[in-house]
Design a protein around this nucleic acid. Structure first.
Lengths: 332, 332
DNA sequence: CTGTTAGCGCTTTCAC
DNA sequence: GTGAAAGCGCTAACAG
């Protein structure tokens, strides 16, 4: 079945006794070709199953119609969802996505950036690994950094800070006043924004929350849930769903009931946030919008940095503190 | 910072007064170049920050050093883990990965295959969307299909059938005799293998399990857990972790305690299988090995189809049926 | 050992 | 409207 050499523009040209330039023009609707000839060429082209050679075109035009996407760790929740959103946005624009995984390693991240540029991507979309900065200087392709409003060079991100505020307001409105914040990694700007937003609101309500830093992982949440003195708090706000879920499991093992003894919130609205029991009150990002803007930027449709609103998703892991709502479980 | 045109092989050649061929040879260690000249060339090359032009090389050699990876839905658990394994295996061989998402749509899958080939990938790795076949005929690049031993043209897969047998043996050994099997989608070959393996063992033990087909999703598991008559069974074996987890949640809501009232097993060992309560007995695939073989195949290091063993992971969701183990919870 | 030459398949002036 | 020709940057024959 496989013809050794796929047919080229020249083959079409020869068979029709026209020039390659005309074929090229006809097939791309550029230049001026008589409608009759043009359609004749198109017919011949798909008769031969002609497919333009990508490398040749890229060499000639200097554009590969490919973008690189660099994620910290595709195995971690949320990044796949991001990748999917980016892929969709790219496909929509006729771009392909070269994927790279930094595996949480800043060195790998640098390497990948170089590597992708060497491979001729037209643009780069980078979700930076924690604690790294991506400097678009010294580099010949547009780079969109997706992280947080506080990140230098950030181009598209969710409003993590406002998300934090929403969570905090929600807890305050329920009447909570003894707050534990699982703040995630100290060097994560995203976590820093989320926690910063929460603390703004707590403090303006005259509450000083207890902050606990840790990894963003489920396991870290477990550890914290096992070790902390839960009785000192009426609510716990985590900077990541994974953290909250780990915390919930550990807390339950200790006989702490959520939300009766302690309200709990997460952040990200992972698929699993609605699955755990009780389903988690959390904040959802509009990944589609973020991805879309990142692509708009790198293809030059937009030149601004944008921050996108998030949604508070109230589920059953939050309730009034039991001291206020005596006898009424899950009171709204 | 950005020099408009990155320096080419010719620039190096001119500056050193040698030919481009010599530079090319020197830089790639091919042909014969005197060591002195070669090192001189290398010095000049990285002085100029020379980076070979990928498109030009691809055009000339006909190889892009890029593989396409096509997954059914990167947003679904397990596929990200796969993608990561493939990416690692590819990077190891100096290949980049162009990622495509079929979004569960056979049409998209076809489109993506064509598209990637048109983009000049050297090879394709396809995890087929349920109910589809990928015919490597009519196509000019090697394709490795990753699915199941029963899939036509499969090149690398886990031994889903033996995994099913392991689960079944484990349940039989515990003394279960009233079996419910959540069989997943009827048109999934992977599910079919898993369930087939389970049933082999159950039947040879004289047990006829009840089979329930459904989507592979968490939600489908919930529905089944809500609707089925749980008292008729001592154990439930699901073809997917997601299904098992959904089932567990729904069953618990109905007051059914796992594993006391009902043992439960999953399949895949998702990150969440160890997180749910109780942690799920399940089967783990060696994704790394599967990914690696798929890559070996497409680069021509291997020409065989291979099936890889799986591991039974026993956790706390399985126990002896309570009728046998009266008074002892979680008896081993 | 090193240089010359001839393209890979395409797009793009520029002439007709 | 159409064609001739140049050349993107690289590698692979072959000649010296």
């Amino acid at each position: 079945m496989n013809q050794a050499r796929p047919s080229s523009i020249r083959e079409i040209a020869n068979r029709l006794g026209v020039s390659t330039a005309t074929v090229s023009n006809a097939l791309r609707g550029k230049g001026r070709v008589s409608p009759a000839l043009a359609s004749q060429i198109r017919v011949e082209a798909d008769l031969l199953g002609y497919v333009p050679d990508h490398a040749a075109r890229a060499l000639r035009t200097g554009k590969s119609n490919t973008v690189g996407l660099l994620v910290p760790n595709i195995g971690q929740p949320l990044f796949p969802a991001f990748a999917q959103a980016i892929e969709r946005a790219a496909k929509q624009r006729g771009l392909a996505v070269l994927i790279g995984d930094s595996q949480g390693d800043p060195g790998q991240q640098d390497f990948e950036i170089r590597n992708m540029i060497a491979r001729g991507v037209d643009a780069l979309i980078v979700i930076p690994t924690r604690g790294t900065t991506v400097a678009p200087e010294n580099v010949s392709v547009p780079i969109a950094v997706i992280d947080s409003a506080a990140t230098a060079g950030n181009i598209a991100a969710s409003d993590h800070r406002e998300g934090g505020r929403m969570i905090a307001r929600h807890l305050i409105e329920l009447g909570h006043d003894k707050l534990l914040v699982l703040a995630g990694p100290e060097n994560s700007l995203v976590a820093h924004e989320r926690v910063g937003g929460m603390c703004e609101i707590f403090r303006s309500a005259g509450i000083e929350p207890a902050l606990k830093y840790s990894d963003a992982s489920f396991e870290a949440g477990c550890t914290l849930g096992r070790e902390l003195d839960l009785h000192r708090f009426t609510a716990c706000a985590a900077a990541y769903d994974a953290l909250a879920i780990g915390f919930a499991i550990a807390a339950r093992d200790r006989g702490c009931s959520i939300p009766d003894d302690l309200s709990l919130t997460g952040f990200d609205d992972l698929m699993w946030a609605q699955i755990v029991s009780p389903p988690l009150t959390t904040v959802r990002q509009d990944l589609e919008a973020v991805a879309n803007h990142a692509l708009s930027f790198v293809v030059g449709e937009s030149d601004a940095s944008r921050i996108f609103p998030t949604d508070l998703v109230v589920r059953r892991s939050t309730a009034r503190p039991s001291a206020l709502a005596k006898g009424g479980k899950n009171a709204e």
